[in-house]
């Protein structure tokens, strides 16, 4: 009962401000798992002339979403997938996924699309979502404006 009444007052913790750094503490993944995840997202969306997924913190976002928002079954798919990725790297290239070069990593992830479809579509979907909802993408590519100030109903489409 007291908790329910307290709830009338409580704002979510993030309403008081949070940073990329403050997200680091979820503890859902071990440090080695986090490293694998970071390299997987970077393999799916690598740095080119534009930032890669790792530089945009997509792996941090994914860990947060999986830990806080997904159901236990999807969490299991996720954790098993990370382990399977590493095992696959060792089998194919004789070393840990994080020790592989970019070509080898791409090879491992490409093969996942056949061998572990549910994890592949999960990790690819989350990577795309994390990337396209990042500040970099939304401001530079999607041209999101918090305050558009107008609505024009019929304008020429500029390809």
């Amino acid at each position: 009962m007291a908790a329910a009444v307290g709830g009338l007052l409580a704002l979510p913790a993030w309403a008081n401000g949070w940073t990329q750094e403050s997200l680091k503490t979820s503890g859902f993944l071990t440090a080695p798992q986090e490293e694998i995840l970071a390299e997987i997202v970077e393999t799916i969306l690598p740095a080119t002339t534009t930032p890669g997924a790792k530089a945009l913190g997509v792996h941090t976002f994914i860990e947060k979403i999986v830990a806080d928002c997904l159901d236990p079954k999807a969490q299991e798919t996720f954790k098993k997938g990370l382990a399977a990725t590493d095992a696959s790297a060792k089998q194919l290239h004789g070393k840990a996924f994080t020790a592989c070069d970019a070509t080898q990593r791409t090879d491992v992830i490409s093969r996942l699309s056949d061998s572990d479809k549910s994890f592949f579509s999960q990790i690819k979907g989350l990577t795309v979502r994390g990337y396209t909802s990042s500040e970099y993408y939304m401001t530079n590519i999607a041209h999101y404006k918090l305050i558009p100030g107008h609505y024009y109903g019929c304008v020429p489409l500029n390809k």
């Binding site: 993030w14 949070w18 997200l23 976002f61 947060k64 979403i65 806080d68 928002c69 997904l70 159901d71 979502r129 994390g130 909802s133 990042s134 500040e135 939304m138 999101y144 918090l146």
Partner: peptide
């Protein structure tokens, strides 16, 4: 005044 990427879960509610 928060941008979409400033939400901890980018808008999604925790389970």
């Amino acid at each position: 005044n928060m941008n979409p990427w400033e939400f901890e879960h980018r808008g999604q509610l925790p389970r």
